[in-house]
Amino acid sequence: MATKSSSEIIREGLWSNNPALVQVLGLCPLLAVTSTVVNALGLGLATLMVLMGSNLAVSLIRNFVADSVRLPAFVMIIASFVTCAELLMQAFTYELYQILGIFIPLIVTNCAILGRADAFASKNSPLPALLDGAMMGLGFLAVLVVLGGIRELVGQGTLLVDMNLLFGPAAADWVIRPFEHYPDVLFMVLPPGAFIGLGLLIALKNGIDNRIRERRKANAPATVTSGSKRVRVTGQIS
């Protein structure tokens, strides 16, 4: 398997192969906990930690595990890191841990994590595997936070509410209220709002990708046939 360059790994994790917008994996926690930014950030950081740790561990043992027990070994590694994340949240962000509830242990079943362990980490050396886990985790985290921000702003008219649950009492005043006397839009806080918000983000990404492809196609060099010779013409063709 040809090793990907660092720039390719970064681009795929953050954009071209984003686990939430392209692979559409991990939708259950993504849609369930993104009613506020702090919930999305808490789950996203836990997922990032598990992705990086499991990718690194899987890469380190890739030459010592038989194919017959490969997947069970990967699941055990992922479950170990999820347990570590769960214990850390219980120790330092207990109230947020209670809010996220079952969705922290359910990181074990996140297809994005097991998929990266099997598709990339098990076939590459530790450093590329660690970078892949970091970029995939950051890509997933970014979608969580953006979706959480949209739902919180439209649904409640606030941003960064209850950030003290994650960053302590100093973050209690971080809340932003851009609108006065905002009527709550319950629809965006409920699950249907999550589906619509995610659909809009996917549509936005696809629209940006299409614009980029059209611009590259318009600026691509064209080949013009002149008699028996082929002439390469650069520049935009109108």
Score class of each variant (00 low, 15 high):
residue 6 S to C: 06
residue 7 S to W: 13
residue 8 E to Y: 02
residue 9 I to H: 00
residue 12 E to L: 01
residue 13 G to V: 03
residue 13 G to Q: 01
residue 14 L to C: 04
residue 18 N to W: 00
residue 18 N to S: 00
residue 20 A to K: 03
residue 23 Q to R: 09
residue 28 C to Y: 05
residue 28 C to H: 02
residue 33 V to G: 02
residue 33 V to F: 03
residue 35 S to L: 04
residue 38 V to T: 15
residue 38 V to N: 07
residue 38 V to E: 07
residue 39 N to A: 15
residue 42 G to W: 11
residue 42 G to E: 07
residue 42 G to I: 12
residue 43 L to Q: 11
residue 44 G to E: 10
residue 45 L to V: 15
residue 46 A to I: 10
residue 46 A to D: 12
residue 50 V to W: 01
residue 50 V to P: 04
residue 51 L to Q: 15
residue 51 L to W: 08
residue 54 S to K: 05
residue 55 N to M: 15
residue 55 N to F: 13
residue 56 L to P: 09
residue 56 L to G: 13
residue 58 V to D: 06
residue 61 I to A: 12
residue 65 V to W: 07
residue 66 A to Y: 12
residue 70 R to P: 06
residue 71 L to F: 15
residue 72 P to I: 06
residue 74 F to L: 09
residue 76 M to C: 15
residue 77 I to M: 06
residue 77 I to A: 08
residue 77 I to K: 04
residue 78 I to Y: 01
residue 81 F to A: 06
residue 83 T to I: 12
residue 88 L to F: 15
residue 89 M to A: 10
residue 91 A to W: 13
residue 91 A to V: 02
residue 92 F to S: 11
residue 93 T to V: 12
residue 95 E to A: 13
residue 95 E to N: 10
residue 96 L to Q: 07
residue 109 T to D: 00
residue 110 N to W: 01
residue 115 G to C: 01
residue 117 A to L: 00
residue 117 A to V: 07
residue 118 D to P: 00
residue 119 A to M: 08
residue 123 K to N: 10
residue 124 N to W: 04
residue 126 P to H: 02
residue 126 P to F: 02
residue 127 L to S: 10
residue 128 P to M: 08
residue 132 D to Q: 12
residue 134 A to I: 14
residue 138 L to A: 14
residue 138 L to P: 02
residue 142 A to K: 08
residue 144 L to V: 01
residue 144 L to K: 04
residue 146 V to Y: 02
residue 148 G to C: 04
residue 149 G to C: 09
residue 154 V to W: 08
residue 158 T to P: 08
residue 160 L to K: 03
residue 163 M to R: 09
residue 164 N to Q: 15
residue 164 N to C: 02
residue 165 L to C: 06
residue 165 L to Y: 09
residue 169 P to V: 02
residue 170 A to Q: 13
residue 173 D to G: 13
residue 175 V to L: 08
residue 176 I to K: 05
residue 176 I to L: 15
residue 182 Y to C: 06
residue 185 V to S: 10
residue 186 L to G: 14
residue 188 M to W: 15
residue 188 M to V: 14
residue 188 M to G: 09
residue 188 M to I: 13
residue 189 V to S: 15
residue 190 L to C: 11
residue 190 L to F: 14
residue 191 P to H: 08
residue 194 A to S: 14
residue 195 F to A: 14
residue 196 I to T: 12
residue 201 L to H: 08
residue 202 I to V: 15
residue 202 I to P: 10
residue 205 K to H: 10
residue 212 I to N: 01
residue 212 I to L: 06
residue 213 R to H: 11
residue 214 E to N: 09
residue 215 R to S: 09
residue 216 R to Q: 11
residue 218 A to Q: 07
residue 219 N to I: 01
residue 219 N to F: 04
residue 221 P to L: 04
residue 221 P to W: 07
residue 222 A to F: 10
residue 223 T to N: 05
residue 223 T to E: 12
residue 225 T to V: 13
residue 229 K to S: 11
residue 230 R to G: 01
residue 231 V to H: 08
residue 231 V to E: 10
residue 233 V to L: 13
residue 236 Q to Y: 04
residue 236 Q to P: 06
residue 237 I to R: 12
